[in-house]
Design a protein around this nucleic acid. Structure first.
Length: 582
RNA sequence: CGGGGUGUAGCGCAGUCCGGUAGCGCGCCUGGUUUGGGACCAGGAUGUCGUAGGUUCGAAUCCUAUCACCCCGACCA
C-alpha cells in the first residue's frame, strides 16, 4: 500500500478529553475519532487492525467447529420480555420504539435471539451439539462511558452460543471454547491469563475470564506462580491466615486514640502491627421473614483485619446479605451509638448481626473501636470479652503473599483487562423460552447452553495498554495496521532512493506482506515520529547514503537502534521474521 | 443517577474576576530556501466564543435556562 492511496491523520497533541493511554494513542494515531460519549468512528488505520483481530477470531472459531451467522442489532422487545430481561436489565439496555410505537431494543448481547433460532431449528438430539457465533455491533448505555474503547457504549463483540443435550456435553463444548480462546489470544500476540470468574447474576456453575495483563486493567487477578491457580480477585478464596485461635494474654482495656480513626493510625499510635487491629464495616440488607416476605432492614457488622479489604462479591454471598448496601450514618448511630471511625463489636446500642472474616475469628488480643469517639479497646478476645460472631465467612480480598487455595504456594496479584469470557449457562434461557429438542425416546428436553464472548474493539485498547512506550503504540505483528513500513529519505527528489523503495515495496506486496510505503517525501523526523506513534512493528529506512554502500536499515519498533542490512537481503530478512511469527 | 469541572479555529490553550467587538502555539494554504529525528523565511486562510433568552449604548466576559463533554463513586466484552 502506498500511503498516498491510504489515509493518515496524526495529531501531535491528544484531545483533552482522552483519559487513558490507549485512547490517547489511538486518537493521536488517527485510528479512532470520537463521535459522542462512548461512541467512536473507526478510521481506516484503526479498522485495519480490527479486521485482523476479527479474521483470527473467525479462523479459530471455525476450526473449533463453531458456525457463523449474523443476528440483528435491533431486536423486538417481546423476546426480551420472555426471559424477563426487558424488566431486569436496567438502564443499560437501550430501548427504542418504531413508527408504530412498538418496542425494540438495541442488542447488548444475543441470548434471546439465538435461543429463538434454536427453538425453531433444533428439533432433534441428532442436530447436537452445535455452536453458533457472530461478530456484531453491541450497545450498552453505560452510566459512565470511559477509557475509550475499553468501556464504550457502542462496541464490537464476538459472541458464541453452544447448544448441547446435557450438562456433560455442554461442559465439553465449554472446554472446546476455552481451548479456542487460548489459541486466539496467543495468535493475537498478547500476554494473557485465563482466570476463574464469578458467575454473577446469570447463575450457572462454570465461568472463566480471559484477562490481558496490563497495569492499567480494571480487574485484579490472583494467581499462583508455582501452580496453575488463577482467579479473579472477586472469586479468589482467602484461607484463614491463623490456623487456630491463640490464647488470651492481655486484658481488655479501653484506650484513648484521639483523632485516630483509621486502623493504620491506631496501629502506629499504639506501636503495634497493623495485623493486630480489626476494622468494622456496617452494611444494611433487606430482611426476609419465614414466608419470604420483606421484613424491613437488618444491620450487619462485618469484621476484617486492619490490613484487609472487604470483597463485596463475597459479602453478597453471605446468607442474608444478598443485595446489601452500606449503612447510612443514621443507621450506624442508631445501632452503635457512635459515628463511623470508632466502631466495634462491643457496647452496641441495638443488636446487629456480626460476621467475622476467617482470619479475624482466630485472632486473639486484638484491637477494635470502642463505639465511642476517640477510644479503642485493646486486648480483645472472643468468648471472653465478647460473644462468638454470628457467622464466620470469607469476606475479604486476598492480598499478595496469601496462601494459594490449591495449597501449592503463595498468591501474587496482577491487573488485567477482561477481553473474553466463557460461561456455562445451563437452561437459564432455554427453559423460559421453551427451547427443547427430542431425545432418543421422543421426549422433549431443554437445551443446555453456554455463551462465549470476546470484546473485539476492547482488544484493540487492551493490546495498546499492554504494548506501548512514550513514543506510541507497539503492535504485535498479528494485529498491526501495517506489518512493515518503508521510510524512504527523499522519495520525492532522489531517483535512486525512490526506485529502491518502489522495488522493495513491490517485492513485499508480492510476498503477501502488509507493507506501507511512506511516499510523502516528508523529512525523516516527521516520518519516524508518525510511524512510531502508529506502532508499525517493522521499519525499513532507505537513504541515499546507505544505498551508495548497497545498504538499507532495518529497525523493529522495540529496537533501540537501526541495523544495516544489504539491499539484496532485506526482503528475505523480513519474510523470515514474519514467517516465524505465524 | 449523585457530587465536582469544562465548553473560544482541525488539535492544545490564553482572554472571562474588572463588559469596548477575539488572540497564541501546533496544524493547514502559497512562494522560496532546506532535507538522516517533528526545518527556516515571507505571505495567507479559518471562529454562529456550545445553544437560547435576558441585562446593557455595547456581552466570549454579567444573569437565567438548556445542551454537550470530562473527572470521582455503584458494572462488564
Amino acid at each position: 500500500m502506498r500511503l498516498s492511496n491510504f489515509f493518515l491523520s496524526t495529531l501531535r497533541e491528544a484531545p483533552a478529553d482522552a483519559d487513558i493511554v490507549s485512547q490517547k494513542l489511538m486518537l493521536r494515531a488517527g485510528m479512532i475519532k470520537k463521535l459522542a460519549a462512548g461512541i467512536y468512528n473507526y478510521m481506516p488505520m484503526g479498522l485495519k487492525s480490527i479486521r485482523k483481530i476479527e479474521a483470527i477470531i473467525r479462523e479459530e472459531m471455525n476450526t473449533a467447529g463453531a458456525v457463523e451467522l449474523l443476528m440483528p442489532v435491533v431486536q423486538p422487545a417481546e423476546l426480551w420480555m420472555e426471559t424477563g430481561r426487558w424488566q431486569k436489565y436496567g438502564a443499560e439496555l437501550m430501548r427504542i420504539k418504531d413508527r408504530h410505537d412498538r418496542d425494540f431494543i438495541v442488542q447488548p448481547t444475543s441470548e434471546e435471539a439465538i435461543t429463538d433460532i434454536a427453538r425453531a431449528e433444533i428439533k432433534s438430539y441428532k442436530q447436537l451439539p452445535v455452536n453458533f457465533y457472530h461478530i456484531q455491533t453491541k450497545f450498552r448505555d453505560e452510566r459512565r462511558p470511559r477509557f475509550g474503547l475499553m468501556r464504550g457504549r457502542e462496541f464490537t463483540m464476538k459472541d458464541a452460543y453452544s447448544f448441547d443435550r446435557d450438562e456433560a456435553s455442554a461442559l465439553k463444548s465449554y472446554d472446546i471454547m476455552y481451548a479456542a480462546y487460548q489459541r486466539i489470544f496467543s495468535r493475537l500476540g498478547l500476554t494473557f491469563r485465563a482466570v476463574a470468574a464469578d458467575t454473577g447474576s446469570i447463575g450457572g456453575s462454570r465461568s472463566h475470564e480471559f484477562q490481558v495483563i496490563a497495569d492499567t486493567g480494571e480487574d485484579a487477578i490472583a494467581y499462583c506462580p508455582d501452580s496453575d491457580y488463577a482467579a479473579n480477585i472477586e472469586l479468589a478464596e482467602a484461607l484463614p491466615l491463623i490456623a487456630s485461635r491463640g490464647a488470651a494474654s492481655q486484658t481488655m482495656t479501653k484506650t484513648p486514640t484521639p483523632g485516630k480513626s483509621r486502623c493504620e493510625d491506631v496501629a502506629e499510635l499504639l506501636g503495634i502491627p497493623l495485623d493486630r487491629t480489626v476494622k468494622s464495616i456496617v452494611l444494611a440488607a433487606e430482611k426476609v421473614d419465614d414466608r419470604g416476605q420483606p421484613a424491613g432492614n437488618e444491620i450487619w457488622l462485618l469484621l476484617l483485619r486492619g490490613d484487609h479489604d472487604l470483597n463485596e462479591v463475597k459479602a453478597s454471598k453471605v446468607p442474608g446479605l444478598k443485595g446489601f448496601r452500606f449503612a447510612s450514618e443514621g443507621e450506624i448511630v442508631e445501632h452503635f451509638g457512635c459515628k463511623p471511625g470508632y466502631l466495634g463489636p462491643i457496647g452496641l446500642k441495638k443488636s446487629v448481626k456480626i460476621v467475622a472474616d476467617h482470619t479475624v475469628a482466630n485472632m486473639a488480643d486484638f484491637v477494635s473501636g470502642a463505639n465511642e469517639v476517640d477510644f479503642h479497646y485493646t486486648g480483645l478476645n472472643w468468648g471472653r470479652d465478647l460473644p462468638e460472631p454470628n457467622l464466620v465467612a470469607d469476606i475479604r480480598n486476598v492480598i499478595a503473599g496469601d496462601p494459594s487455595p490449591d495449597g501449592k504456594g503463595k498468591l501474587a496479584i496482577q491487573r488485567g483487562i477482561e477481553v473474553g469470557h466463557v460461561f456455562y449457562l445451563g437452561t437459564t434461557y432455554s427453559a423460559p423460552m421453551k427451547a427443547t429438542f427430542l431425545d432418543e425416546t421422543g421426549k422433549p428436553q431443554p437445551l443446555e447452553m453456554g455463551c462465549y464472548g470476546i470484546g473485539v474493539t476492547r482488544l484493540l485498547g487492551a493490546a495498546i495498554e499492554q504494548n506501548h512506550d512514550d513514543k506510541g503504540i507497539i503492535w504485535p505483528d498479528a494485529i498491526a495496521p501495517f506489518t512493515v513500513v518503508i521510510c524512504p529519505l527523499g522519495y520525492d527528489r532522489n531517483e535512486t532512493v525512490k526506485s529502491a523503495a518502489d522495488n522493495l515495496h513491490a517485492e513485499l506486496m508480492a510476498a503477501g506482506i502488509d507493507v506501507v510505503l511512506d511516499d510523502r517525501g516528508e523529512r525523516p523526523g516527521v516520518m519516524f515520529a508518525d510511524w512510531e506513534l502508529i506502532g508499525v512493528p517493522h521499519r525499513v529506512t532507505i537513504g541515499d547514503r546507505g544505498l551508495k554502500e548497497g545498504m538499507v536499515e532495518y529497525q523493529h519498533r522495540r529496537d533501540e537502534k537501526a541495523t544495516p542490512v544489504a539491499v539484496a537481503e532485506i526482503s528475505t530478512l523480513l519474510k523470515g521474521k514474519l514467517k516465524t511469527k505465524q
